[in-house]
Nucleic acid binder design. Structure first.
Lengths: 263, 263
DNA sequence: TCCTGATGGTTCAAATAGTGGACCTTGTGG
DNA sequence: CCACAAGGTCCACTATTTGAACCATCAGGA
């Protein structure tokens, strides 16, 4: 493994659950010795990828990342396109909608969302939440269309039970993935939050890989046989649009599957 | 210079003006040989910091950056805090307001903004624009409070004349910086866009350095002697608030200067 | 008071990982 | 059909990275 790899890997240890780490913690996590870890951290800090708290000496993610992400966003406006597509989708489904993208191996991070404002009983998005792969419609469908190697790595983990409906058995989850691959949609019925129903469709980037999902979430009661086809069609259309805005393409199979929905 | 440095430096060559570069272009820009450059690019691609277009073979900034920036934003919600403070500021000045942060050596990138919706004659923010240091209120005040080394590096450049009012003489710009340091405010009178007046105040991060500026922009005619003090006070208050939300502190001198405005 | 075991940080000989000139392949324009 | 520039690869040589041992500081305990 190259030095650069080892150095960049350090950034990955900083998560929302542990946004600041000290030298010793990095050393333990990486399994390398303290001296090398320290030099790597110093290099990242010099480059602006990390910032060091002058008092506690702890390291956190730095401004250079924001800057580069901003540049990326300006050149290839993923979030802006997402927002545009979400607005159209929201007009059609009148339920909370969101676009989330893969965040390492933890789950999905929300890139953009619109909260429902038309119903009394609505679903809120907590934008800081990381959506777990196994318990959300977005997670399931993303995994279903992800690279096999990545999928296997995730499926090899232990899954938390978040509600009484959460599926934690890898074998059953694999069936759900199979189902998502067949239909093009991920579904979750209260697996993440009780009583919340959600449908998600995959999004693909320029390199053809699945980058995340677009989804809508609503109280279970409002997902009826009457509304189902309308909602699925709207979500599929949105996923197809956003994928092409992102410069990607739907896999041929998926396009064929959705043919009857997006004409 | 370490390998990691050389590798990370490659990311810096991707800007909004050249969002995609090929191997040869990177090689020329870095001055290194092709083989090393190629290996570095490959490593960055593997780590997700770059993406390679499968057809053109060109490299662009990758999804890992968005992911890490998202994590940073969730842990230390710079943009969210910015938006909150902007809303308060907008209520007070009822003009277009924005927060922009240093983007390498090119200028400032806009992190959040609210466009005026109360006047017929209003100023629009183009969020993709990079605000040059020499021609905007935000740029001037950021430079004024930046590290001397950084300031000198920027001042050593050639400046473009964007409007008939743009100042391009480094000596005169140095005086403007002096002025901004004294008052705590940067000003621009049509130097970026004709007829647009703007006032900006500096923002400081946890490490005590100036990260960017908060500003309001309006048609020249609406910045009058009557409105001036109200606007300055609101901007100063907003800068002070946002700085402390960001975990930073105003330099003691500046705090004293603004004392009469923010009590 | 003086241990003990954390923390962050530094040193330098040994060894590993990075370097870059030369080379291959493909595609475009003349 | 050639020349040139593009992306990419090879491998002997060498410079950078490595990590055990080191120091300084701090907090708690006997």
């Amino acid at each position: 493994m190259s030095t650069v790899d080892k150095t960049l890997k350090l950034l990955g240890y900083l998560k929302t659950t542990s946004p600041e780490l000290g030298l010793s913690q990095f050393t333990r996590l990486s399994g390398d010795d303290k001296a090398s870890t320290h030099r790597r951290l110093t290099e990242l800090t010099r480059a602006g990828f990390l910032e060091q708290d002058p008092v506690t000496k702890a390291y956190r993610l730095g401004a250079a990342l924001t800057r580069l992400a901003l540049t990326r966003e300006q050149s290839f406006p993923l979030a802006e396109n997402a927002r545009r597509v979400l607005e159209r989708l929201y007009e059609q489904v009148a339920e909370t909608v969101h676009v989330s993208i893969v965040q390492g191996e933890d789950g999905l991070g929300t890139l953009a969302h619109i909260d429902d404002r038309s119903h009394g009983n609505r679903v809120y998005i907590e934008p800081a939440d990381v959506l777990p792969f196994h318990a959300t419609a977005s997670g399931i469908v993303t995994l279903a269309f992800a690279e096999p190697a990545f999928r296997d790595k995730i499926l090899a983990r232990r899954f938390d039970r978040l509600t009484s409906e959460t599926e934690t058995d890898p074998a059953v989850l694999a069936l759900h993935l199979e189902d998502a691959r067949r239909s093009g949609f991920g579904r979750s019925e209260g697996a993440y939050e009780p009583d919340v129903f959600s449908v998600a469709a995959p999004l693909f980037g320029r390199d053809g890989t699945c980058k995340g999902a677009i989804a809508t979430a609503m109280p279970k009661a409002r997902f009826t046989e009457t509304s189902e086809e309308r909602i699925l069609a709207a979500v599929a259309k949105a996923a197809s649009d956003l994928t092409s805005y992102w410069g990607g393409e739907l896999p041929r199979k998926l396009k064929a599957t959705w043919d009857y929905l997006i004409e």
